[in-house]
Design a protein around this nucleic acid. Sequence first.
RNA 1: GCCCAGAUGGUGGAAUUGGUAGACACGAGGGACUUAAAAUCCCUUGGCCAGUGAUGGCCGUACGGGUUCGAUUCCCGUUCCGGGCACCA
Length: 942
Amino acid sequence: MAKEYNFREIEQKWHKLWTERQTYKVTEDENREKFYVLNMFPYPSGAGLHVGHPLGYIASDIYARYKRLQGFNVLNPMGYDAYGLPAEQYAIKTGQHPEKTTFANIDRYREQLDKIGFSFDWDREVRTCAPDYYHWTQWAFQKMFNSYFDEELQKAQPIEKLIDRFKAEGTWPTDEKAQSDLLMNYRIAFLGETMVNWCPKLGTVLANDEVVEGVSVRGGYPVEQKKMRQWCLRVSAYSQRLLDGLDTIDWSESIKETQRNWIGRSEGAEIEIPYTLSINGETEGSFTIFTTRADTMFGVTFFVLAPESELVNKVTTPEQRAAVDEYIKYVKSRTERERMIDHTVTGVFSGAYGINPITGDRCPIFIAEYVLAGYGTGAIMAVPAHDSRDYAFAKHFDLPIIPLVEGADISEESYDAKEGIVVNSPISEDKSVKYDGESLCLNGLTIKEAIAETKRFVKAHNLGRVKVNYRLRDAIFSRQRYWGEPFPVYYKNGIPTMIPEECLPIELPQVEKFLPTETGEPPLGNAQIWAWDEKNRKIVDKKLIDEKAGIYPIELYTMPGFAGSSAYYLRYMDPHNNEALVSEKAASYWQNVDLYVGGSEHATGHLIYSRFWNKFLFDLGVSKKEEPFKKLVNQGMIQGRSNFVYRIKETNTFVSFGLKDKYDVTPIHVDVNIVKNDILDLEAFKAWSPEYETADFVLEDGKYVCGWAIEKMSKSMYNVVNPDMIVENYGADTLRLYEMFLGPVEQSKPWDTNGIDGCFRFLKKLWALYWDKEGNLALTGEEPSADSLKTLHKLIKKVTSDIEAFSYNTSISAFMVAVNELSQQKCSSRTILQTLPVLIAPFAPHIAEELWEAFGSEGSVCDAKWPQYEEKYLVETSIKLGVQFNGKVRFDMLFPVDATPEQMIELATSAPEAAKHLEGMQIIKTIAIPKRIVNIVVKPKA
RNA sequence: GCCCAGAUGGUGGAAUUGGUAGACACGAGGGACUUAAAAUCCCUUGGCCAGUGAUGGCCGUACGGGUUCGAUUCCCGUUCCGGGCACCA
């Protein structure tokens, strides 16, 4: 009896041995070069893992194992993003503490992950909800509170430096409240009165990336704008560094582009516009507009303010007051969602006029919702000829339109392109105001030149300044939830004050109910023991709150999901350190993440926040690199492949796919786990649900064929494939291979269990290579044949370059070819059979260990040395090349391997087969591409 | 509307970045072994045409052009699908 490939036994055995031997434990080792591989840690949901989840983990595990075989000291940790809304909502529904469900889910995840055979160092596991972890989240928040962003140095500085500056300037107030308010404008973590995305249904505020098209990402509830006092992070201060950093990292172009869009840098000019309250009135004051099209100053025919702008009150004349008030009321009544969808032109005249500093013209000032308060200065100059929104507004209110670009047709729509030659600027010489004897003239310039010239002019004559604006907003950092990190903050006479660093972590208090309080306070309002005793430095019952006794209320907000996930990669470096987030030694050794694997859906959330957070810690000297993730690979989504059965309407009879068009049928999702190769298991179907127990079938060829569709993998579509089941039926090695064989890691693709047999067969063939009929190791001790050596070295070369390029599917194909070749060669050479397990180890570690051990090798195959290929085994003695005439392949012939192109042409043209092609022809050109083709271009002799 | 990425057999996908398109795998068809099934092994498998046959010819990488001896690959235009941003001045 040949020895059977018993994957269950093998995998169980090695899971046990890996744990016992601590095979995957990593320590800092100065003698070896480090390599840091990281997966985006999962949120442990109640549904457990489906086959899509491990895709990225397998991809990174292969790379981690490969790097280790190459001699690197590889850090490959795993942990859990454990705070989150689903656990809290489940708690509200059932009264179960979110910690309980979260921990249960984590255990389930761990169990599933362990089956797949990852090389994670579980000693370094982190959980964001663990006090010894969020200790450092709170600590970082306090550091941000105590820092400001120095515009000149472009980095975070201690807030004390700013206080010193105010003192030196004599602008430091004496009143404590005033001091606090002043510093709030500078702190990197600050309490701000800002417009926030308020979701009444969830009872909390949301960050910009948590809102899509006016509804919450989680749950899809409507979101409205509300002015609230919230903790914010001054992410916008880092805009330029976040943008510049993108050029230094190895991320996909599309995700960098997404971040560039999100940061939204735009270079322009701010220009001061004096205004009057009547067409011929005296100047009352001025406001500032922002434009990226400074070249269009000569085409301004009106100005527009955002309805929320503070200027609205100043410029509204008594005659227009009623109309303006009514308009503001209307704007306020509209939700964010309505404003986003409905772009009808609305607006109202303020009564005032702005004076164009370039032309001296007086143009009406309007108030309209199409101008946003939050961007630029909340005020614009309108150039209807060259901006589509201004154009629509001008048409609606019948305002003049002045074209400024040669040949631009603006009769139907504006000309927005930044290409062309400027005209009408000015229209006549007296239409350009002189400053110090100089007036602006842009006629004849290209638009780009005109922009530069206007900026120069504006700057030279002090009419405004060159300005860069960013769309990136500060992050709202507080949530009205229970299941999150509490803020280490108390309110001393209304002034937010940090709990001393030595008293951290401030642990999440127990509450009776997870809902907001009846008075509308966040859930932490339900906590009884939630007041800060300043003198005794401890948390006490809130009944004791008394300003005179020094007992103050603690912040009721908690931190958002991204708080805990922003610096977790640093914590993995030194997860048990109670003195610091990460020790100097560990941070210096591990530096930053070399390879980060995760979904692209985090492009504008986690991946921005994390970069920001790291830059801040870099400024502090805690993080050693400006960018946290050197290389990023975005794994694609695994979609589900749903199966359908077709029920004839109002019956319990089901028609096979090929015959369904003959009946009036309703397609019904059927569990993919009772369908194989689109053939329905009839008995399993009847047992699936009582409803189908008595079902009848109309079969084709004695089979019931199901229809299929590619959809999102979800319970309701009955298309969820569980990795446990695959591991049970085929083994973890087959699962790992198949997930990678499915296609490029970065690409989204549907899961189809059908193809898995190919990978399973491959492992069985590999296994069979090693054992003779009696079940002994098949070794003849013979020297390997030249063919086998060639197969092996070809494989080493291919697999090495494919892993480096993240092209796992092609390297698995190469394995399949190699194993077929070796088995045909009846290879039983020790040299070759001993090398194969090392090569396959990153992909299929269990079988690799088993085969490695079969040779009596010491220790784990994980500590083997990755083989090098030798060119000498790959050298051919002769090569077959195609000889072409005019680009068509006519015949193949053999050439000596070291023939020069000239010799190849010589040989090809003199070959007997060439004669018929060359007869009566004249050679006009010959091209020889080494190792490919000899091309001879001919034409008939004249 | 703007930006990014993509389109290859019945299916998932290869193609040394300008050099024999369809590797590898699934599915399908045929065969061997077997009482039978499973497992395993072998052959065929992009389309069309000619031939008893070995074989030969033509077409073919979303569509239409271009550059080139030669294009899945480079350039221009079109269509379709996916992703991001979106009254951001």
